[in-house]
Amino acid sequence: MTIARPRTVADALDALGALPGAQLLAGGTDLMVEINFGRRSPDDIVALRRVAELGAFEVGEEVVLGAGVTYSVLEHDLADELPALAAAARTVGSPQIRNAGTVGGNVGTASPAGDTLPVLAALDAAVTLAGPEGDRTLPLDAFITGPKRTAIRPGELIRDVRFRRPRGPQLFLKVGPRNAMVISVACCAVVVDADRRRVGIGLGSVGPRPLRATAAEDALAPLVDWDALRADRDAIQRAAALSAEAAEPITDHRATADYRRHCVGVLVERALTRGLEP
């Protein structure tokens, strides 16, 4: 095993070029567990902890979150600007994990239970990949191709996650069987975008990858009073039911598919009620 410790994205790309198949390491909260348990034993590691530019973020008309932005930064420093993302970050693991884990890691690991992913999905986020040929940007939906599968190519790393900053309430709700350090059984994000007159609904832990409840969004948008940012209870319940239909949950040791689907309906209804005060 070898380790490269670059300080810039350019150096990191060089290291990836020199070490084909190298594993990227950021916060370590996923990869180290795999190594500790002997489930993965990478030949080479490119450690990104020192790449300062990856830890930067900008919040303007567009939000750009460097891949190295930690959950703690989202939770504490961006709670006003990005409330749903901050709420999601607060539910990730423990304070120690949130101090180490990164948004790039969450996106790159692409776990179906990744807590920030439904929020990023609802925000129509895109993923910027830096590679030997330059940068390319993929919508999150195109980047995450399946459970723990992404469209990243050899030699690439995630530079940032970016999205247009919407105007309107943003909410995140997550069901877990414990009040801290818990993997999501089901979660949802609701992003009210007053400018585009859309309500983004993202679902987590109820499919092989983060889902958008598109039918629910389509049904809801024309029923929202966009000046008052309100919708009536019927519209909300209809959207919640369509969201539950959009879920593709499985039964595993954490929950049954039926319960997960049930959660989606309840969570979306509650989130929309909070966001669109009927």
Binding site: V175, P177, T251, H253, A255, T256, D258, Y259, H262, V266
Partner: peptide, 16 residues
């Protein structure tokens, strides 16, 4: 389990 409360009528016990 949460499902026992939220969905008492459902067959909430999974294959697991």
């Amino acid at each position: 389990r949460a499902a026992d409360i939220a969905m008492p009528q459902a067959a909430s016990r999974g294959a697991a």
